[in-house]
Design a protein around this nucleic acid. Structure first.
Lengths: 151, 151
DNA sequence: CTTGATTGGTACGATATTGAACTATAAATG
DNA sequence: CATTTATAGTTCAATATCGTACCAATCAAG
């Protein structure tokens, strides 16, 4: 009985998520310098959290985008002096992406700039609800991620 | 005390939502004919649910995309014979977008094609959790939507 | 080793997204 | 009602996304 009407429910959840993604991306990009967009921040953030020296192909997999898209995104960051490309000493085909000081600083500044807005959200929106949905969103993300390979 | 660390929580929620959006969009587009992508489906679905004869500018607002993006999306649907553009008898500047039979049929077919996958999700994932998060996602979407104009 | 298959990355072309500028029509103002 | 302002839509240019094709380096099989 619980599965009665399940597809519309799934559909609605994905629909809301799509809208929230669009709105939150707009918020992020409002805090980014001209010429840089969400994927650029994603890479800066990834390199900061996971650590420098990752390869383009590894990041393409992490973000689940084609490697050509990652080439494009990283080249934009290089052009802005936010990361450096170096040869991978362990594999002649491969390259490593390293944050520059400017890259680290920009990521930190963007996060700092967004913090007041997030704090305001935390005051005006019942943040405990976000705490409630986070594990479920994670579970859904993991399911979809694993499912991706099966279909 | 509940606001301690709120920004990271908000950040994590948006991050998971971004990934889920990407994965679910990939699922949708896997069921669409070559040359059509998620925004095309969005318009077909919108016209079916809200009703025919909407204007491009109204749909641009509904989807919160620039009107140039909507022009492009609608023109792709016209090119594929899925919608028709007509003059708006009530406003000489404006146009109306009408579904063709092919447009209605395609939307129905895409949904039908995705239903088994959604039903499988409903079997393998605890669907009651989606029921739990849907109202919170809606609330968050409404908050962000209203907040958008204020900032 | 040599050769064939695989992998990391780029070049290129087709389509998508979006801001700026423009046209045509409608609405508002005096 | 003439003129200004606002609105709906398109065109154009810049950048983004991503599939295909390609190259160079590595790995695997013999």
């Amino acid at each position: 009985m619980t599965q009665q009407g399940a597809p519309p429910l799934v559909f609605q959840v994905f629909n809301e998520i799509g809208i929230i993604e669009q709105l939150s991306r707009t918020v992020l990009e409002a805090h980014m310098p001209k010429g840089l967009i969400a994927p650029h921040f994603g890479v800066l953030n990834h390199l900061t959290r996971v650590g420098d020296g990752s390869t383009p192909i590894a990041m393409a997999r992490a973000f689940q985008v084609p490697k050509t898209s990652m080439t494009h995104t990283v080249s934009g960051l290089v052009k802005h002096g936010l990361v450096e490309m170096r040869a991978n000493p362990e594999d002649g085909r491969s390259k490593q992406v390293w944050l520059t000081d400017a890259g680290r600083a920009l990521r930190a500044r963007i996060i700092a700039d967004m913090t007041p807005q997030f704090e305001r959200l935390a005051r005006e929106f019942d943040i405990s609800k976000l705490r409630d949905i986070l594990p479920i969103l994670t579970e859904l993300r993991v399911y979809l991620d694993e499912d991706r390979d099966r279909v």
